[in-house]
Design a protein around this nucleic acid. Sequence first.
DNA 1: CGCCAGATGTGGTCGATGTCAACATGATCG
DNA 2: CGATCATGTTGACATCGACCACATCTGGCG
Lengths: 208, 208
Amino acid sequence: MRKKRPYHHGNLRQALIDAALELIEERGVPALTLREVARRVGVTHAAPQRHFADRAALVAAVAEQGFRGLRAHMEAVRASAPARVPSQRLRALGVAYVEYALAHPAHLRVMFSPEVADKSRHPQLAAAAQEVHETLVKQIVEGQRQGAVAPGDPDELSFAAWSMVHGCAILLIDGQASRRSPAASIDAAVDRLHLGLAPRAPARKRRR
Amino acid sequence: MRKKRPYHHGNLRQALIDAALELIEERGVPALTLREVARRVGVTHAAPQRHFADRAALVAAVAEQGFRGLRAHMEAVRASAPARVPSQRLRALGVAYVEYALAHPAHLRVMFSPEVADKSRHPQLAAAAQEVHETLVKQIVEGQRQGAVAPGDPDELSFAAWSMVHGCAILLIDGQASRRSPAASIDAAVDRLHLGLAPRAPARKRRR
DNA sequence: CGCCAGATGTGGTCGATGTCAACATGATCG
DNA sequence: CGATCATGTTGACATCGACCACATCTGGCG
């Protein structure tokens, strides 16, 4: 029982997604064109219609793949961080988010493109995004269990964490804050997320 | 003064920007079309060319106006917050950012649209964005002077703060975290930005 | 083996768009 | 009053997304 093997071209759907991503990397989201993608893959201009209802569907597919890649990267980093130091795992997760964004700016842009803002139209995309969020929530809850994260509604805390890393990623990609090296900005932002803007009273090291 | 448009519109440039914003609010960024905008204003399809070199230029103009409006809102809120409690002013500034985003989601989307990602091509836009950043930095520095903000490079701190409020705004606009009311999410996120994710030892009273 | 139905790709077409160039109009200033 | 230039118009063109009819391939079924 073989999977639906490619019939004519050979996995045209994935080839189109790949070509779309390449195109975006080269010339930006606005340059993404169904016809150009088809051209690159070597099919006629109407072939993509068999796999994507419209342009938005292609964008959504690229975005979905981006979310899956992001989650994979986060999970990998999380797994490789020492489990005994939960604050480090959470940190690593945040850094991983921004790292992925900087490594795949084109993907990130598509993932939050206005064209797929209405995720209810793209359930698969919504699910992939949701999984990223869940990864974050899980780590927050774990951090709370181990006393490394302040108590409170995990959803609220994870929303705050996600806001920070996401904003950080977007701003870095857009080059809004490139005076220093991106790595330094990431570290500084994640530190600040961890510690807060307000001064911490005791000069002595946090223990526990 | 009802006037049928004389041959010369008078202030076509601003009228186009306004119409563009309306259109985006009604039907989203992708629906923004030079021709449709021209239609709404009642001029022919090529008239906008006299004021905007291309579509991106119109988008940039809308975005620039968005940044200016955001800055105005932030300054207003900042001025109305008690100057003696710097942590409140900073908080208010953050809340103002997200408030503006939620009140003008269309504007926000345009301001960070991929079409104007390369701000070097739109110097005026870059300047307007820079001013928003400066407003934030100023408040951070003030907060540090008054001991309400942890010491450190103001640029780093403001980048972190900007990341948080911006990420918060984007996520809320995209409806990624709408389980609770937006206002509650904003408060929670700004609180977290202030206090940090890590637990704080003393349960000191902190209002608002 | 042969054939058919559905999946996949082709080629053509249509309306809309962004951009350009040539032209018309009217405001400004001598 | 007249010239000049910014502003708006008209017409054209290439490209795009979407749609359709048709061709071709695949896999299943008699």
